[in-house]
Every structure is written in structure tokens, then in C-alpha cells.
Design a protein around this nucleic acid. Sequence first.
DNA 1: TCAAAAGTGTTTGGGTTACACCCATGG
DNA 2: CCATGGGTGTAACCCAAACACTTTTGA
Lengths: 233, 233
Amino acid sequence: MTTPDPMHCAASAPPAPTLHPMPFVRIELVALSVIDDRLHVLLSHRKEAPYKGRWGLPGGVLRIDLDASLEAAAHRVAAERLNRALPNLGQVAAVGGAKRDPRAPWALSVVYRSLVQPTLDATPGKRVQALAWRPVDEVAARSDLAFDHTTLVAQAVEAVRREIRELRLPAGWAPDAFTLGELQGLCEAVLGERLDKVTFRRRIDHTGVAVAIAGKMRAGGAHRPAQLYTLAA
Amino acid sequence: MTTPDPMHCAASAPPAPTLHPMPFVRIELVALSVIDDRLHVLLSHRKEAPYKGRWGLPGGVLRIDLDASLEAAAHRVAAERLNRALPNLGQVAAVGGAKRDPRAPWALSVVYRSLVQPTLDATPGKRVQALAWRPVDEVAARSDLAFDHTTLVAQAVEAVRREIRELRLPAGWAPDAFTLGELQGLCEAVLGERLDKVTFRRRIDHTGVAVAIAGKMRAGGAHRPAQLYTLAA
DNA sequence: TCAAAAGTGTTTGGGTTACACCCATGG
DNA sequence: CCATGGGTGTAACCCAAACACTTTTGA
């Protein structure tokens, strides 16, 4: 915007010599969740070409008539495709190139990620045939997703792991009340590695990201009841 | 790309009912450099409205006919506007919204950053009237840049500081040979804070990011000559 | 009584900080 | 001689890792 470049790119506007064609812009969503102690990603089944029959990330076209910003667009796409809201949407990156999508001469995707509660589920929305959770390590190993979505998932997972490793726990990710053991299990599932119990507990109360709920305990299995915690801030 | 959405957005293609208008897509560059022991950002003077007479980031329109990818576009824009190549281009973020640029109904910018050598300079290129280096803290304090460029600079600076704090020194940033004192001065200028000498030296040879050039010393001022180092990897 | 998970204490070691001190050089 | 920056050594401190141990429950 620092130079007098030609402006508009509305497909409805008549082409003018000074107007440059603009890329096809989409939003892709990487919803991550811990299921059965493993990190999973939410995938959408493709019923049409290209990549018919393959799985890919749920996403949608940027609608400049509906979306006030990129983040607003991500929220709208989540509501339309998954019939649910995604909390803590964070931008991963923008990717763009001429060969990314055979349907368009040039495709640009802005990728958003979200860590969601293990319990909540999504249902197929507009233009979506089926949704399924798949383990991220399986996705990485087989890399059989549509388009470049395998690398997009990898980038999102990397970002989320950095977040969890630094104990920046997204609000609303953990349930309202949980034991430190449960929280540690969730973090271990996200990171894909074991954590030291003592260190984990010390870091929790040193940073204050979670605080004990006075008096509340969880008595469950054949073991000592555990203090319940809740996310602070 | 997981849904059968309408595709193309070429301004030269006739509009069809199913086609959505696409946003105006630009690349913005945040070139950072240490000058006189302070971190500076390269700004471009705006000779035309909007924001006529103000300073902003150098940038340019994404050209899907010329650019194979977003990163390629950033390199082309650097060459065109600054008459030089920018090393270590890294993506900061994508920002987009309806109110970002009064010239377009919806504007999307992908922001790239680069830490460049203190000595090298840029010259105004195509459609650029004047270029100037300004201290980043002054830019942050006055926030008088065009558009939302003040926040874009802040994001880029934050990313670069995280990089330097973790001693991930961009190749080509430091001169071919330097003393540890000089390197520490550069890092301090980027971070805007003083570093401990002992810690800095220990971290350098522990990580191995810089290695001594055997036998090479710099004899300069009224003090003991210093061992010369060069960036590894 | 035993298994299982909760919770606490101690030691060790890596890495940063802070401070002191010597080294080599030009003025 | 002395100011200046280069370079080394030491002690304190923080934090994480590893390990041992006690506690409390259900089976």
C-alpha cells in the first residue's frame, strides 16, 4: 500500500488493462483434539474432484461481502462447515502458489488452528459430506491428504506443541475441573512424549495457569482422591 | 479445498453468478537493520493518496502471472521496490479486512520480514519515491505510519527479537568476520537491552552458531586485539 | 493386602546471572 | 600509567530431571 498500484479485484467488475488478476483465497481449518490419549485432527471427506475420495482439511472461500476480517472468515467457515464454533483460533500461516489447487490458476490459503475439548464433536455442515478425527502421526506418516494439507497439519501441530510446551494453555481447552494427572495426560498426548510428574506440577503452580479449587476432590478409581484444578485467567 | 466451491478469480474472466469477488492481495516488506546501535526499519515515502506524505512499508501487488509462490512474490517485490535482494525472508503473518485500505473493498496483505546487514543500503525502485531507515522504537511510539503498518512493524520486530534471543542468527546478517563484542552489540541493539558478556560468550560457543577463525585477530582501538569469528552452518 | 494414582522431598546437573579479576593495546 | 575492551574464573541461583518415598483409596 505504499505505492500507487492498481486496485480492485472484484470478479464482478469489468476487467481493465491496469487490473491484475487476483488469486483464489480460501480459509483452511486445523481443528486438533486429544482422543484416546492421542492428538487427532478433524478431516473432511472429499466427494468431488480434485482429490475425490481423499480426505482434507475443512475450509471455505473467503467472502469479502460477509467477512470483516480474516479471523471473522475463519469463524464463519467453522460455523458453516462444522456446525460449531472453534475457540482460540490462531493463524498458522498463509500459503500460496500457482500449483496448489488445480481448479484455480493461483490459490492462496490462510490456515487457522484450534485446540478443542476432547468431548465436543462436530457435525457435517454446508457442502460437507463427512467429518472424521484422525491421529496426527498417522496423517504425517501416510501423508495422503488432499492438496498440501499434510504440511499444513504439520505446521499447525508444531505451533500447538510449542504452545503447550510453554504451558500457554488455551482457555476452554481443558474441562472446567480436572486433576493435575488428567491435565498432564492431555499435554503428553499433544506433545507425543512423557512428562515428569514433579516438574509438571511445579511448573503449573509456579506459572499459575491452573489453580486448585479449594475443597473439591475427585474420588474415582482404586487410588487416592485428587485435588481438582481449574484454568486461571 | 475440501468442498466444491466455485473457483476462479481472474479479473479477465467474465463474472459468473457463482463466482465470489476476491480480495486485493499485497505483499508488505519489513526490512530491519541495526544502524548506530539501534534497530531501524526501512520505510517508503508515499507520494500519492491515501496517506499522502506519510511513511509506510514498501510493498507491492501479488502478481499471479509472475509469482510462483508467496515467497517468490516477496523476493520480486524486494527487487522491484528496493533494487536489492532481501536475505532470510520470513513470513510474519497475513492480515486482511474490509477497512484496511480505502482503495479496495477488501485488502489482504502477507507480511514478510528480513534482517539485513547494517552496511547494505537500498535505493528507491519502481513506483518508490524515497526510502529511509527509521528507528523502530520511534515508529512504535509515534505510530504515524500509513494503514496498519505500525502494528505490522511491531509484529515483525517481535518475531526477530524472539529469533535473536534464541541465538538463531540469520545467515548473512553479520559481516563475514566479527568479534564477539561486535556481535553482542548487534544483538543488544536488536533486543533493545543489555546482555551479560560471559553468558553471551558461553552461549555462542555452546550452540556453535559462530566459530573462531584460527589466528585471525582484530587490532583496533586502545585495547587488546580480539579474536575474529564467523557464522557457522 | 495389594495395585494404582496422588502428592512430597531430595539430589543432581545444566544454564544463566553477577561479580571479580587478569590481559593486551594505544594514547 | 591508565583507560578501554578482550577474555577467564568463581559462586549464587533458578529450574528441570530423576528418583525415592509416603498417602489414600477401591478391589
